[in-house]
């Protein structure tokens, strides 16, 4: 069941970014763990697509965690308590602790950002940016890039099928797959470029280069309270971050 929206997507997005900033600045495992357990996990669970988001988080964070464990767990120069000596590599307690801390932080980042990105109401976000008077080119780049992604993926699949029908045998080996990937690129890119050139004419014809503010077909879901909230939150996080860093440096 998809969650009911109470916040404007711009507010959600800003919230996620500020949370990441806080985790970075505070840099304490207790805080990271609290964010993970109290924010990320509940957010994923009520997202309406916990499985999909969970898989995405594992796919992105998994390799990062693994490399962190390998790197810091085996090679941590400051490590003193040696748990296992493997010659050139030493598993140290400090290394493992450091790896766990880094891993926790990375999990929080991926969790926060992926959950936000995968549940974002894109049209609403674009409409809000337009209503707020953001630069129209920036809005278009964000909107069309995200809008194009599924189209590009679909087209790539269709091209691969067409090429298989021409005699391209895609094996299971990495080389064969790489070759297939390269062969998809030419028609895919040329097709996108032809479309882009046509789209360029279309944009001109539909007055995209007009000056003055754009309007949006979708109503403005943003509220004055949220706008104030966003400003206050941004200022508060920045002030807190500055104070935290200063105090940390002094202490």
């Amino acid at each position: 069941m998809p969650r009911r929206r109470t916040l404007n997507p711009l507010t959600e997005l800003l919230g996620a970014v500020l949370l990441v900033v806080l985790v970075l600045v505070v840099n304490r495992w207790e805080f990271s763990l609290a964010v993970l357990l109290l924010v990320v996990v509940p957010a994923v669970l009520v997202s309406g697509q916990p499985r999909r988001i969970g898989v995405a988080i594992v796919l992105v964070a998994g390799p990062l965690l693994l490399s962190s464990v390998l790197l810091h767990g085996l090679f941590f120069p400051e490590g003193r308590v040696v748990l296992l000596d493997l010659g050139p590599a030493r598993v140290t307690q400090e290394g493992l602790v450091f790896a766990a801390l880094m891993g926790l932080r990375m999990s929080v980042f991926t969790g926060v950002l992926l959950t936000t990105a995968m549940t974002l109401d894109l049209p609403d976000l674009i409409a809000t940016m337009t209503h707020r008077g953001w630069n129209r080119k920036l809005v278009f780049i964000i909107g069309s890039a995200l809008g194009l992604l599924p189209h590009v993926a679909l087209r790539a699949r269709q091209i691969t099928r067409a090429q298989q029908a021409r005699g391209l045998v895609v094996g299971r080996g990495p080389l064969s797959r790489l070759r297939a990937l390269l062969m998809v690129t030419t028609p895919l890119v040329i097709g996108l470029l032809v479309d882009a050139s046509e789209r360029n004419h279309m944009l001109e014809a539909r007055g995209f280069s007009s000056s003055g503010p754009r309007t949006s077909y979708l109503p403005d879901t943003d509220t004055a309270a949220q706008r104030t909230g966003r400003r206050v939150a941004t200022v508060a996080v920045l002030l807190f971050a500055a104070a935290w860093l200063v105090i940390g440096a002094v202490a």
Binding site: P123, M202, S210, Y217
Partner: peptide
Amino acid sequence: QGAWGQLSMMSATVAEEIAFGPSNRGVPT
């Protein structure tokens, strides 16, 4: 020709796609 090149690709609905031109010109909602 080529319908795909004429979609703005940033409209989630047909209504927004049709509105793309006038909204560029600042026609009120």
